[in-house]
C-alpha cells in the first residue's frame, strides 16, 4: 500500500494541473483554484492518517 500512496499523489497532482490548465484557458480562473484546492484536500485526506499512525508508533517506540 505504501508505494502506491506516492503514485496516487502524483496522479492527483498531474490531474489537477491538467484540469486547472484547461479551466484557465477556458476563462474560469476561480474553478481552477477550486480544483487545486480539492486536490490538496484529497491528498491531505490520504496522508494525514499515515502521519498520525507514524507519530503514534514513534511515540510508543521512544516512550515519549
Amino acid at each position: 500500500m505504501e508505494v502506491s500512496l506516492i503514485f496516487k499523489i502524483a496522479a492527483v497532482g498531474i490531474l489537477v494541473s491538467v484540469i486547472s490548465q484547461i479551466l484557465k484557458h477556458s476563462g474560469r480562473e476561480e474553478h481552477a483554484f477550486l480544483t487545486s484546492l480539492a486536490g490538496l484536500i484529497l491528498v491531505l485526506f490520504w496522508i494525514v492518517p499515515y502521519i498520525y499512525e507514524l507519530f503514534e508508533t514513534i511515540r510508543d517506540l521512544f516512550s515519549l
Binding site: 508505494v3 494541473s17 517506540l61
Partner: peptide
C-alpha cells in the same frame, strides 16, 4: 523524480509527494 516532474506544473504537489515519500521511508525506519 515525481516531485521534480510536478514542480513545473503545480509546485505545491511536489511538496506533497516529498511528504508522502518521507512518510513511507519513515515507516521502514521505524
Amino acid at each position: 523524480l515525481l516531485a521534480l516532474e510536478l514542480k513545473g506544473a503545480k509546485s505545491e504537489f511536489s511538496t506533497y509527494i516529498s511528504l508522502g515519500a518521507c512518510v513511507v521511508v519513515l515507516f521502514y525506519v521505524v
